[in-house]
Design a binder for these strands. Structure first.
Lengths: 153, 153
DNA sequence: CGGGCACTCTTGACTCGTTCCAGAGAACCG
DNA sequence: CGGTTCTCTGGAACGAGTCAAGAGTGCCCG
């Protein structure tokens, strides 16, 4: 990220720089992704509608795909989860995901630059990215989980 | 893994050891997962039906969930993919996934033992697993991709 | 500044992996 | 071998995401 929330003008410039037409749905979706990190599609649809009124879900799906294709947003999808989107792109960071509530936190790559991209045996694959997901319990869910375990014992 | 394909008797013992009743669908599913590493649910349903005749898809889904719950199989689900299952469990290995055809290969963890489980900042999460997915192109898809790029230029 | 092309949004149906439910059937304890 | 409890069958349902056709609009160019 390069500082605070981008202004509308900055968002507009991002779209133009990516050769995407500037439309109200696109500005709203891009803004929503910046304001709600790791939000799923449904949350983004609701955020966009709160700002613009009626917008078809298809439009939001289309916009998210276009933004992802040009690299303005990044799509993440941990196992068992729906697609989520974030605006922090281009720095190869990773994610910690809560097994209990699904909360996601950003985690900087421990090994800087191209990271774990050197597995012991790549089986002939040409690799371009190593995606790391740390699974565990977020601070909120740790007490709840402990209580649940106590109850079982 | 502990050697070659387990015999039916060994599969039966695995189920009993896990406190699961021994049924024909369970033996067939467990066997199919051993015979078809990284297969999706549909492939497994077809493998099971080839062996037993009619088996409801629901039965296979139930069995896969039960086997996953007790740790006899492991469920993996790279982004944009349906659920897949493997019988290699308990050794914390990772996967290389082909962006083009979805092929999956096992990759031993470069850092042995509990691996990358020490991110720079865990945000208060209590982590228990680091899942690594290496994205790239499998040997089969590399020529195809190169041709596609040539065509574009 | 206005016409026109190509792209984008709306609407609504649809796919497909997966889950839910109720009842029949089977494993296993005693 | 009977009873209990878990498992399987069959069919309906769900939900995230996609497809398709036509109306609408951004933006290039004259």
């Amino acid at each position: 990220m390069l500082g605070g929330m981008p202004t509308t003008t900055e968002l507009e410039q991002m779209l133009r720089d990516a050769d995407l037409r500037v439309t109200r749905p696109r500005l709203a979706v891009l803004s929503a992704v910046h304001r709600h990190p790791h939000a799923d599609t449904d949350s983004l649809i609701r955020a966009v509608r709160a700002q613009l009124g009626d917008v078809s879900h298809q439009a939001v799906y289309d916009v998210l795909r276009a933004l992802t294709a040009v690299g303005l947003v990044r799509r993440i999808q941990p196992a068992e989860s729906v697609a989520r989107y974030e605006s922090r792109v281009g720095d190869n960071h990773h994610h910690a995901v809560c097994r209990s509530c699904g909360a996601i936190a950003d985690v900087d790559c421990a090994v800087h630059a191209v990271p774990c991209l050197t597995p012991s045996d790549d089986h002939g694959f040409v690799l371009d990215e190593a995606e790391v997901i740390y699974w565990g319990l977020c601070p909120e869910c740790q007490p709840a989980q402990r209580m649940e375990m106590d109850r079982r014992v």
